[in-house]
Design a protein around this nucleic acid. Structure first.
Length: 315
DNA sequence: CGTTGGCCCTGATCGC
DNA sequence: TGCGATCAGGGCCAAC
């Protein structure tokens, strides 16, 4: 369930703790959390040991840490110039229940922890990064970096025009300065599917999951199954604007600091439920028209909407 | 090639 | 008290 805002909170909290840090040791408690990794757990562990993290970058719901190369000198940091351009990255996807927790080195390992990273930061000292994931839909991998087709930054958190191969097919998210709005609107129109399915298609626009899809559609007064081809460009622009508003509001409410991330036991979890107007609100009156919010099964997930102001319109 | 349905995965919760 | 059923859904891939 972590979507763009939750993943960004993780990235933002993680970045100051891991940028410039050296990975001293990796412990794989459950190899199923490496299902994205092309190789055995031993390969994952050996390639990370001694590596330096150059940044924490995010595109949509994907997070990655480019690995600096050329650590010939112990005093070198990725900023010192002794490092070359990264060629691979540690890729993270939280899936449904993944959390990345920053801990003290000697802190107790929480239940459901799948991966443990001992890191050493030049300023913050010895730290531990734990990957906790109940449902194991999330996973990590070491993946080669490749150039972005548009030469813009691969994601939020680094100016480098690089993106992991696993993330290359993921569209830029609506908060990315390089998000191509005209291309999105054009692609949306040519789709032959419902609007919610399109919003959830990460190859069209990334970062939106079930919760913020429902919230954005409510804000734009659109039914989840409204055919994309029947939506005017003007209406699609309005929807995109609502998507951005919803994501930004969640970001504002979930924004956290290094210290907060450090002690926050819930890590990436924690939805900003007090601001939800559709998701999980079934049976509650719509804030706009008072009709009761309905929940329907759609795409093997719940869709929450107002039957009064989110009506399916004739194409 | 665009679209769609199915599957993965497990702890918490609920009903009998 | 115990236990089976149910639920949550992002990403990927086979199939159409």
């Amino acid at each position: 369930m972590p979507e763009l805002p939750e993943v960004e909170v993780v990235r933002h909290g993680l970045a100051p703790a891991v940028t410039g840090a050296r990975i001293e040791r990796v412990i794989v408690l459950d190899a199923r959390s490496l299902k994205r990794h092309d190789g055995p757990a031993e390969d994952f562990v050996e390639r990370l040991a001694g590596a330096h993290v150059a940044a924490a970058v995010r595109r949509g719901k994907f997070l990655w840490m480019p690995l600096a190369i050329g650590s010939a000198f112990a005093s070198s940091t990725p900023e010192s110039g002794a490092f070359g351009e990264p060629v691979e990255a540690l890729v993270v996807h939280l899936g449904m229940s993944g959390q990345v927790l920053l801990r003290a080195r000697d802190a107790e390992v929480a239940p459901l922890t799948r991966l443990v990273f001992d890191v050493h930061h030049p300023e913050h000292g010895a730290l531990r990064v734990d990957f906790v994931d109940q449902r194991i839909f999330g996973s990590m991998a070491i993946d080669p970096l490749q150039a972005t087709p548009d030469a813009a930054a691969g994601g939020h958190g680094s100016p480098l025009p690089l993106v992991p191969g696993q993330v290359a097919h993921i569209a830029r998210d609506p908060l990315d300065p390089a998000f191509d709005e005209a291309r999105f609107l054009s692609a949306l129109r040519s789709r032959r599917t419902g609007i919610k399915r399109a919003l959830l298609d990460q190859t069209l626009v990334s970062g939106i999951g079930n919760i913020y899809a429902d919230e954005s559609l409510w804000a734009a007064r659109l039914h989840y199954d409204q055919p994309t081809s029947s939506i005017s460009t003007r209406k699609a622009r309005e929807l995109l604007s609502e998507v951005r508003t919803v994501l930004r509001r969640a970001l504002d409410e979930g924004g956290t600091s290094f210290d907060a991330q450090y002690v926050n036991v819930n890590g990436a979890s924690g939805y900003f439920s007090h601001s939800l107007r559709a998701y999980g609100q079934q049976g509650m009156p719509c804030e706009r028209c008072g009709r009761l919010i309905v929940r329907e099964q759609f795409m093997n997930r719940g869709s929450h909407f107002c039957p009064g102001c989110q009506r399916l319109r004739a194409a």
